[in-house]
Amino acid sequence: MRSYAAQRAGLAIVQLAVLSVLVFVLTSLLPGDAADLRFTETLTPSQVAALRAELGLDQPPVERFVHWLGNVLTGDLGTSLISGGPVVDIVRHSIGATLVLTLATLAIVVPLAVALGIVMGTRENGRVDRAITSITLALSAIPDFVIAVVLVAVFSLKLGWLPATWIGGNLLSSPALLILPIAVLFGRTVCLLSRQVRAGTVAALNAEYVTQARRLGIPRRQLLLRHVLPNAAVPGVQELARTGDTLLGGVLVVEAIFAIPGFATALVDGVETRDIPTVQGLTLVLAVAALLINLGADLVCNRLVPRTALLR
C-alpha cells in the first residue's frame, strides 16, 4: 500500500512539472500582449518597445520561463500587467467566493448523491430506480447556463424572491445569494455522481463476495454498510475527481451569470485583457488544485479497495 501511495505521489510530481511548463506555454501562446493591447493608441512604437522591456516581454521564452518558475517556487506569482499589484493578491481576493461556492455545492451534492445512488442500486431496475434514473438522465442533459438563465428569469425577475446578481458583501453572511448559483451547479453534479454510485452498488451487490457473505448469514443492513458500501464508493470517488472538472466549468458559468467576483471572473478578465502573469498564476493554481483532487481521489480509492500496483 505504501508503495502504491509513493508511486502515485511520484506521478503527481511529474504531472506538476509538466503542467507548469504547459501552463506557461499555453498562456504565452496568446497572440498579442498587454503592451499591445493597452497602449497602441497613445504610444509610439518605440515607447511600446520600452514598455515591453520593462515588463520583461522582450526576453526569449525559455529565459522567461526559468525566471517565472523560479519566482513561482518562492511563492511569487508575478505582477499583474493591468492592476500593477501582485498576482498573489488577485488569487487571494478571488479564491474565497469560488471556494465557498464549490464547497457548499459539494456539501449538499455528495451525501445526496451517495444516498440516491444506493437507493437506486439496491432497487436495480425497480420502479424507484427507473424514476430516479430518468430524472437524473434528463437533468444531466441540460447545460448549466440554460438552467441558470431560466432560474434567474423565474425566481429573480418574475417572482423577485431571490437576488439575481451579486450586490457586494460576504457570500456567507447572505446565504440567499448562494441559493440560485448552487441550484445551478447542483443538478448536473448530483446526477453524474449518483449514477456512478448506483453502478458501483449494483456491481458490488452482484459480486460473488457479497453473495457469499449473504450465504454466511450476514444480515442485510450489515451487508450493505460493511460489505457493499466500500466497493460501491470507488466509482463514486473517481467520478468526484472528474466532477471537479465539470464543476469548475459550471462555476465559471455561474460566476459570470451572477457576477460573482470569484476565480473564474478574474480568469476571464485576465484572458480578455491579455494579463498574462495573472492568467498564468490563476491557471497554475487551478491546475494544481485539480491535480491534488485527482491524487486524493486515487489514494482514497486505494484505501477503500487496495490494489497491487499503480503501473499496469
Partner: peptide, 22 residues
C-alpha cells in the same frame, strides 16, 4: 504516459485560453 499527465488539466480553462487566443 504523456496523456496521463495531461488528464488533470481543467478542460474549460484550456479551451477558454485557446478560444480567446484565436
Amino acid at each position: 504516459r504523456p496523456l496521463d499527465v495531461l488528464l488533470p488539466l481543467p478542460s474549460l480553462l484550456v479551451i477558454s485560453v485557446v478560444a480567446v487566443g484565436w
